[in-house]
Design a protein around this nucleic acid. Structure first.
Lengths: 212, 212
DNA sequence: CTTAGCTTGTGAATGATTTCACAAGCCCTC
DNA sequence: GAGGGCTTGTGAAATCATTCACAAGCTAAG
């Protein structure tokens, strides 16, 4: 398959969100222009994004909301559930373990881990925190595809190595440090301090950063 | 000033993090190659990024760790502190209010707000949660530059409108919905479900997404 | 059946970002 | 103070992403 830009995938996720809203509000069809409007982009961009994966609309008519939303879900791989483990049950990890936005999209938190015995055993939204030492055993048993890392920066690389070695194939890293992962493992990072710093840059150098 | 790509600003933030580590570990100078290695990019990229803002190194020698880190801090606007308010004291908002990564970079949380009276009055790392109704009054008084939104999707646009109208000039949005803000307000969004969806795409379409 | 009015899908053009490649410059040694 | 060995800073080239612009195709109306 051709290379798909990350920006395209990100927009698909956004389109899907709007399609679900449209569906809920009773609309049966939608044009690339309307979808673009909701997502803050252009109709050409919407059509181009979709064109990488096939042809989903009807000329003169637009897209069937229901069909397009199924198609995008399929493109993103959301027609099946994904199992997620969260490593680090501090403030952020605990918040994510209970975050509804994950579960509504088919991401199931099947395990939460922490090194601190004081946190082990506490329940987060139905999942008990387990000791970090059990990671390998649990990964072998539960076969989660994705690990979310909410550990301190200095521990992140070691945990990433452990979970990928144990079979996890995708990592979402909230620790403020970049990670190296072996070829074939998908990696994404969310760095909240960096986001604030980009805003600070924007405020400092008014206008140098294209707004959005 | 020329337009600076967001990707450049993001990398600068990353370089700064490494420079701080390097400084702490006693290194006095660093080359673009070493910096690139740590940040997962190329030496040419590092030099190009810096070249937008000036000339900071010595040919043959590399960069003085201390000077470069001061220079980047200045570029990003981090030589001064920034005041931040957090709106929404649910799981995510509360976690962010107590997140050390913000404070260590000079972002001071000066207020946390919630609509739910049950949460009002609770203390988060020294800051009491205040009623959302006080937003405008507090913004006028505290003059925070940045607002972090951790409210439900359906409330986010209304809160964004209120805080920007009251004088906040930058918004970091954690609600899973895109926001429209008036010209001149800096806006960034962190969508955690989207990040997982990008990983799901990567897992589903093995190799279609450049793994970075 | 034909025409009018929309909207898609997509090559081509433009714009943005990254990578290349090398002259210029600095330090250290001899 | 001349030469060797590095490393920066930066135009030019290459790559990647977005926007343009329009033929093709669908529906509804007459």
């Amino acid at each position: 398959m051709k290379h798909i830009a990350e920006s395209t995938v990100r927009r698909l996720s956004l389109y899907l969100r709007f399609l679900e809203e449209y569906e809920a509000s009773g609309h049966a069809t939608i044009s690339s222009g309307e979808l673009a409007e909701s997502g803050g982009t252009t109709s050409a961009q919407v059509r181009k994004d979709l064109s990488f994966f096939g042809s989903f609309g009807k000329r003169g008519m637009g897209y069937t909301v229901k069909d397009l939303s199924i198609a995008i879900r399929e493109i993103l791989g959301l027609q099946r559930p994904w199992s997620v483990i969260i490593v680090g049950a501090g403030k952020i990890g605990a918040a994510l373990a209970q975050y509804r936005g994950f579960t509504t999209r088919g991401f199931r938190v099947v395990g939460v881990y922490d090194r601190d015995p004081a946190r082990v055993g506490t329940k987060l939204d139905g999942v008990s925190v387990r000791p970090e030492a059990e990671l390998e055993r649990d990964i072998a048993k539960l076969k989660p595809e994705i690990a979310v890392l909410c550990v301190p920066a200095e521990a992140a690389q070691a945990i990433a190595d452990r979970v990928t070695k144990a079979g996890v194939r995708a990592v979402l890293n909230f620790a403020p440090t970049p990670l190296k992962v072996t070829e074939g493992v998908a990696m994404r990072a969310v760095n909240m301090a960096t986001e604030l710093e980009i805003l600070a840059f924007g405020l400092t150098n008014g206008g140098a950063l294209p707004v959005r």
